[in-house]
Amino acid sequence: MTALLEVNDLVVRYPTGSLFGRLRGEVREVTVLDGVSLTLDQGETLGLVGESGSGKTTLGRAIGGMTPMAAGSITLAGISATGRQDVFWREMRRQVGFMFQDPMAALDPRMRLAASITEPLAVNGIGRTERRRRAGDLLAEVGLSPDFAERFPHQISGGQARRVTVARALSLRPRLVIADEPTAGLDLSVQGELLNLLNAIQAASSVSFLFITHNLAVARHVTDRVAVMYLGRIVESARTADIFARPGHPYTRALLSAHGAPGATPRLTGEIPSLKRRPQGCEFHTRCPLATDRCRSEPPAEHLIGPQHQVRCHFPLAPAGKASPQVPPAHPEPARSQP
């Protein structure tokens, strides 16, 4: 089966520098995404995890056509784009719904919710009466009563705003929904409601989700596969059960232990380096407890360490025999034999 979404060697750069610098024609750029590749099947949920500055939000925005790509290609349902091709993006935008990180900021404060929900329909030239009818259906679908249609964003709660953004993302019946931190800022009990709603929507329509989150506990429950990002690269990707049972990258292990039970040992020193000063060699070597001279000079290639399990590391953790599926394995001794 061919994948619904295929991203190949995607590169995104942001311009930096001052107005005077730009007037003088200086081009300074920061590489935010550096050669990202991923695939996503119809009806599948891929979790994109990483800390702030890892580029996970940028990747979501690039796939959603909100951030121009500098190189690489995106293929959705058989149509590809390698640059700014309008035909592709128009089709793309109809197939992709986007949920923003801050639902309140993603709703126009001066627009009634019905108008916000059906804005994608209006952009695609669907008339007013049809839009009004669909707004009611969409509200019902996300579990909100019809009188929400006439309200303004400041009259609803954070959890309800999330549901409204879900409704908007679904309004064009997309095949892919990109959800950027869909549970950030929600209370635990409400978080469960929203995740169950997304799951029910997926079960009913086999829509695919790209689920961007920093919450590994949530990712473990709701994703089929997980891709871990660090400094604009995917450093590890695998089926969710595999990545939690047998993380191959030292960074993944550190993340898991930060979330997991107390007593897990690997300590990351320092913080994510600035994108403007990307480390040589392996980008993670400045914080990696296992870094060698090779890591400091030579960028690692991707290794396949299991079915669908890829790791970008010179010394990936060999797949453990049997690890309990729920508890991340304890960190192995740093003294490992080099291959």
């Binding site: 009990s189 978080q191 469960g192 506990a217 599926p325 729920q326």
Partner: peptide, 21 residues
């Protein structure tokens, strides 16, 4: 009890259907 049951980090077996209050 209900609040703790909702915490995905405390649910050992991965499940698509999460408890709510």
């Amino acid at each position: 009890r209900a609040l703790l049951a909702c915490d995905p980090a405390r649910i050992d077996t991965p499940s698509r259907h999460l408890p709510t209050v």
